[in-house]
Design a protein around this nucleic acid. Sequence first.
DNA 1: ATGTGACCGATTGCATACAACAATAAACAG
DNA 2: CTGTTTATTGTTGTATGCAATCGGTCACAT
Lengths: 233, 233
Amino acid sequence: MLPLLPDPKPADPAPRQRVQDEIRRDIIFGSLQPGTRVTEAVLAAKYGVSRIPVREALRALEAEGFVESKPYAGSTVSEIPVDDADDLFSVREALEAATARRAARRAAAQFSAGEPSAEWWKARRLLADLLDDGDQAVAAGNLQLLPELNIRFHLGIADLSGSASLTALLRQISGKIEWLYATDVDHRGKQSWSEHRSIMAAIDAGNPAEAERLMAGHVHQSRVGYLDRFATP
Amino acid sequence: MLPLLPDPKPADPAPRQRVQDEIRRDIIFGSLQPGTRVTEAVLAAKYGVSRIPVREALRALEAEGFVESKPYAGSTVSEIPVDDADDLFSVREALEAATARRAARRAAAQFSAGEPSAEWWKARRLLADLLDDGDQAVAAGNLQLLPELNIRFHLGIADLSGSASLTALLRQISGKIEWLYATDVDHRGKQSWSEHRSIMAAIDAGNPAEAERLMAGHVHQSRVGYLDRFATP
DNA sequence: ATGTGACCGATTGCATACAACAATAAACAG
DNA sequence: CTGTTTATTGTTGTATGCAATCGGTCACAT
């Protein structure tokens, strides 16, 4: 006999990843405020899993800088790095300039060596879709979608650069930047998004210098915009 | 019956940290070569602990970029990031310039506000000892001690900056740089070390611009030296 | 001979159980 | 009343056992 509900629970194939994303989201969007003590047991109960996935998620979040832990003493939610904003942006400028430069160099190399590799096409295709989605969101006035799309675009460029080290660093910084912006939306949204296509074009053209220049300017504007708005001198 | 040796092993109070450091050391100094498959079970047996500490150590090392893992598929030792060297150095330049600038600013603030805080003195004292140890090593010709002392000095400056975000980023980059240098010693050792005191002096003087300038130049020389030596164009 | 499918060993992911440690609070001496 | 010592409790750290999943391999049909 066939059961009417063969699989009532969606099976949850990756509890650790899910829990990690949930906790990070709760931290970024204020449900878990800085200074809050988070214990493995209550989080485990909250998300319906054992302590082990929660524990690993907390360790990962600690590496990302969202929580701080002391041995046998527990974990607490970190402070929002507002004081570090300016410096984080300056590092991000150098970092993303490097990724754009590399991406353009790699694009040129891929095309000069006959057919681009499969993984290159995959990353490039993802960026194309992303750009379209963003334009669509802008056209429809859904500006609240832009922060997420923005991060994915920049991480996509890092992927194109082919450097795992730089991608990991950018991922770490992006988390902090997202946290900083979470208290408010990116006001410069439309303007900022439109700059992405020219960066992409410079990369496609295999022009490292131009890609680097555009990306550096793009991030710099983002930095200036943030500092203007939140005025943390 | 009572065993003759009730506690032959020194109890090992922190297996996870120890195992993590051991594995990282083995990776950096060649005992575990890139591409090697590392399984939790054999590492657990190798270090005489259970799989859990090994597992967490591997996760942390994955966040540090030393191993790569795929779900249910195991972990392998990452490739040495030689291709990323130049870009890592360029990011490091921006990053350490920021830490030096902040450290100087913070030093000035500490002194202008009466007595410096306890944690400031602690970090400052650690750097003083470090500088002395390095000078002593140089005088005694123990240049092989310098790479370790060098990393600790730069992380110490990051501590002085008071920014957890920047310190975490530097820690991540430092691991990679150490890995790059592990194949050879830092040839510029003596010269490089002597520059640390002037950086420290600029910070103590509360001169952010000068501290930033000196640190940027210091890291830049390190970069040029590395690229000259290993010539990866 | 070769492509395709299912099986099997190996390995990770998670849950439960227990031990070690830190932090707090209570008891006590001064 | 205050400083110190000691119990107690709550939380993390580790060990073991089992379930889920992946990679390779062997049979088999084409």
